[in-house]
């Protein structure tokens, strides 16, 4: 380490200057060539990976009000209410079927800790993760997503990624 005094300072200055030139190049070419670490957020958006745990989508069709998700949730941020509905038999003389119908399915994202246990335990494919992340709100209360809003997220559920062989 027989470097002259000030050598380390100059090497450091070289690094920052080089980075500056690289960033200029990157901006001039208009692309992210691995040099620019941030993007122009509202204009350019980061694309999260398919498995990213952004927000939970609810498929109301599949939900049977079994409450498993609400029970397994570590911080109880899922609120479910439902009632039994009697379905008229489809053919005459048939049995009257009971069907559970969802009245309320709220997830309080102000409380949710994004562990994914609810999605994991759902036995009827009603809950999915989607990588969407733009749902911040000005008021804490608005972080409570009701069942319609959760249903809307269904359109953003990505396909599961291929598995490494």
């Amino acid at each position: 380490m027989n470097k002259p005094l000030g050598y380390g300072l100059l090497v450091g200055m070289k690094v920052t200057f080089k980075t500056m030139l690289q960033t200029w190049m990157s901006i001039a070419t208009g692309g992210r060539k691995g040099l620019q670490s941030t993007v122009n957020y509202p204009k350019v958006k980061e694309v999260p990976v398919a498995r990213a745990r952004g927000v939970i989508a609810l498929d109301q069709e599949n939900c049977t009000v079994c409450m498993l998700c609400a029970r397994q949730c570590p911080d109880w941020c899922i609120y479910i209410e439902g009632h039994k509905e009697h379905k008229e038999p489809t053919s005459p003389g048939g049995r009257v079927r009971k069907r559970s119908t969802l009245d309320r399915f709220d997830i309080d994202y102000a409380l949710c800790m994004y562990c994914g246990i609810c999605v994991e335990v759902c036995p009827f494919d009603a809950l999915y993760w989607t990588p969407e992340y733009e749902y911040s709100e000005l008021a804490m209360g608005d972080m409570l997503h009701d069942m319609d809003r959760l249903q809307d997220w269904m359109s953003t559920v990505p396909d599961a990624p291929e598995i490494e062989k």
Binding site: V49, N62, E120, C122, F124, D125, Y128, I163, E164
Partner: peptide, 16 residues
């Protein structure tokens, strides 16, 4: 992925 009929077939092994 989950325990439903389709989601329990979706493996969570490392992605391609």
């Amino acid at each position: 992925y989950g325990s439903g009929p389709t989601t329990k077939k979706t493996s969570m092994d490392v992605p391609a």
